[in-house]
Computed example of a mutant assay.
Amino acid sequence: MKPTTYYAVIFTSQRNEGDHGYSEMADRMDELARKQPGFIDAESVRDAAGSGITVSYWESLEAIRSWKQNEEHLVAQEKGRQAWYESYKVRICKVEREYSF
């Protein structure tokens, strides 16, 4: 069950051409993030032109900081800058309310 308020990390990106190990690493990062304390959920989409968005949800800013400093995640971040992304942007937001249909 999600807490009443929580945080969203919004990662938007433009991929470079070619996979270069990206798919395997993306699957590993999803698997690893889901095991992190404070992780709630994640959603991700990418279009045919390489534009994508991943939103991960966390219980606290501390949990987000811990994830950012995870050793395997640090390796993935560096590979992203070197080989996978033309550009990216990270936004961290506090979610104060949620509803759905």
Score class of each variant (00 low, 15 high):
residue 13 S to A: 14
residue 67 W to F: 08
residue 69 Q to M: 15
residue 68 K to V: 14
residue 35 K to L: 11
residue 21 G to M: 02
residue 63 A to V: 02
residue 59 E to V: 01
residue 77 Q to Y: 01
residue 29 M to R: 01
residue 101 F to S: 15
residue 69 Q to P: 12
residue 32 L to T: 10
residue 64 I to W: 01
residue 85 Y to I: 00
residue 88 Y to L: 06
residue 47 D to I: 04
residue 18 G to W: 11
residue 10 I to C: 07
residue 8 A to S: 04
residue 68 K to R: 12
residue 88 Y to A: 07
residue 3 P to F: 03
residue 39 F to C: 02
residue 74 L to D: 00
residue 25 M to I: 10
residue 26 A to Y: 04
residue 42 A to I: 09
residue 28 R to P: 01
residue 17 E to C: 09
residue 10 I to T: 09
residue 87 S to D: 13
residue 41 D to I: 02
residue 52 G to I: 00
residue 39 F to H: 05
residue 10 I to N: 07
residue 97 R to C: 10
residue 16 N to Y: 13
residue 92 I to H: 02
residue 25 M to N: 12
residue 76 A to T: 06
residue 13 S to N: 10
residue 14 Q to W: 03
residue 30 D to H: 12
residue 61 L to C: 07
residue 91 R to G: 11
residue 72 E to Q: 09
residue 8 A to L: 04
residue 86 E to S: 14
residue 47 D to L: 08
residue 71 E to K: 08
residue 82 Q to R: 14
residue 65 R to T: 08
residue 97 R to P: 10
residue 56 S to H: 07
residue 30 D to K: 11
residue 45 V to H: 10
residue 4 T to Q: 15
residue 74 L to W: 00
residue 88 Y to F: 06
residue 43 E to Q: 09
residue 21 G to W: 01
residue 68 K to Y: 09
residue 20 H to N: 12
residue 59 E to A: 10
residue 27 D to M: 12
residue 74 L to P: 01
residue 11 F to K: 04
residue 46 R to P: 10
residue 63 A to G: 03
residue 30 D to S: 13
residue 101 F to I: 15
residue 29 M to A: 02
residue 38 G to N: 01
residue 23 S to K: 14
residue 72 E to S: 08
residue 51 S to A: 15
residue 24 E to F: 07
residue 6 Y to T: 00
residue 60 S to G: 04
residue 95 V to P: 07
residue 101 F to Q: 13
residue 98 E to L: 13
residue 88 Y to E: 05
residue 50 G to S: 08
residue 45 V to C: 10
residue 61 L to Q: 11
residue 35 K to T: 11
residue 49 A to H: 10
residue 7 Y to T: 05
residue 19 D to L: 02
residue 87 S to W: 12
residue 71 E to W: 02
residue 14 Q to S: 04
residue 41 D to W: 00
residue 98 E to H: 15
residue 66 S to Y: 11
residue 99 Y to H: 10
residue 73 H to R: 05
residue 54 T to D: 09
residue 63 A to E: 06
residue 95 V to D: 04
residue 16 N to V: 11
residue 97 R to T: 14
residue 8 A to H: 04
residue 33 A to R: 02
residue 45 V to P: 05
residue 20 H to F: 12
residue 49 A to P: 11
residue 77 Q to L: 08
residue 83 A to K: 11
residue 3 P to N: 02
residue 47 D to Y: 09
residue 21 G to V: 03
residue 43 E to N: 07
residue 78 E to G: 05
residue 83 A to S: 13
residue 64 I to Q: 04
residue 70 N to E: 13
residue 34 R to V: 01
residue 60 S to I: 07
residue 47 D to V: 04
residue 79 K to R: 06
residue 28 R to Y: 06
